[in-house]
């Protein structure tokens, strides 16, 4: 029972982790707390239904298309909305993303309605056994994808020129600019990366939580809380935070009662901020916002 709770907690946590990574990457390169990160994924989930059900496309083609659309969405948000106000203070940037959040909610409601929809593709409900712990196939599948995406992100940030440049921009934007690194282009890529991650999260989470304009609200909040675990700066910190939240809320839900499940993440963040306001992983150099 315990192993099972932990395992499925890690599975949900891995999706929080992807969301948290996107929140961190956008924040540290643009000072923007992106409240619309979850809604990028929500749009992706609705598009997934369109591609799978209405257009009758293959599942893998659907994933490709959804991720591509979400990248374009990220690019569009940067070019059209965020770039003109890029030099504003953090509150303006944050408030603008609230606007984007409501616009995307509205767009989804307009096109696809406000009702909850079932994702056309569901997992075989037969659970699988891993070392004595039983886990649903959906969770296992998502964990596998999250690991693969994590590996891709790791390779991107460490072995590609644009990925290293993204980290250089985090480190010292002015020095990066002096080196001839095209800062605006890297910021555009950063939002594209947020879209890339959201596309996968949307398509992976849809079969588990159903699809509606509000589907990502809770996930976003948990992803954000996880990001705070990393001081909104450290990717490792955010991932650890996300996994902890996933496991803790599952344990709380299983042993205390399902009504405390959602509250768990908030209890954790309050405790964390009280004792380590800089985040779980000590970041002294986190930029002032």
């Amino acid at each position: 029972m315990l192993g099972q709770q932990i395992l499925s907690g890690l599975a949900t946590g891995s999706l929080y982790a992807l969301t948290a990574i996107a929140v961190v990457v956008v924040f540290r390169n643009t000072r923007t707390i992106n409240l619309a990160q979850g809604d990028f994924a929500m749009i992706g989930a609705f598009l997934g239904i369109v591609f799978l059900k209405d257009w009758g496309l293959n599942y893998y083609v659907t994933i490709l298309l959804v991720v591509a659309c979400c990248i374009v969405l990220g690019f569009g948000v940067e070019r059209i909305i965020m770039r003109p106000i890029a030099n504003s203070d953090w509150l303006t940037l944050f408030t603008t993303t609230i606007g984007i959040y409501y616009i995307l909610h509205g767009v989804a409601g307009l096109f696809w309605g406000r009702d909850t929809k079932a994702f056309p593709l569901t997992f075989d409900p037969t659970p699988v056994d891993i070392l004595g712990a039983v886990i649903s196939q959906g969770h296992l599948y998502n964990m596998g994808w999250a690991l693969a995406i994590g590996a891709v992100l790791y390779a991107f940030f460490n072995f590609t020129k644009q990925g290293v440049a993204m980290r250089a921009l985090t480190d010292d934007p002015e020095a990066a600019y002096m080196m001839g690194i095209p800062v605006r282009f890297i910021v555009l890529l950063t939002w594209g990366l947020a879209g890339f991650i959201a596309g996968f999260v949307g398509i992976l989470i849809a079969p588990i939580i159903y699809v509606s304009p509000e589907m990502m609200d809770e996930v976003l909040v948990k992803g954000y809380v996880a990001a705070v675990f990393g001081g909104l700066y450290s990717i490792q910190g955010a991932v650890i935070g996300a996994l902890l939240i996933g496991v803790a809320e599952n344990l709380a839900g299983g042993y205390i009662g399902s009504h405390v499940k959602t509250a768990t993440a908030f209890v954790m963040i309050v405790v964390l901020l009280a004792f380590r306001p800089q985040g779980l992983i000590g970041i002294q150099k986190r930029r002032e916002i």
Partner: peptide
Amino acid sequence: IAQVPEGRRIFKDLSVSENLMMGAYT
């Protein structure tokens, strides 16, 4: 034209090789 900025301004969270890689970004 390349610049060696005041106060060095190297990328602290990047390895030495990655710093050099960024110098060759263009």
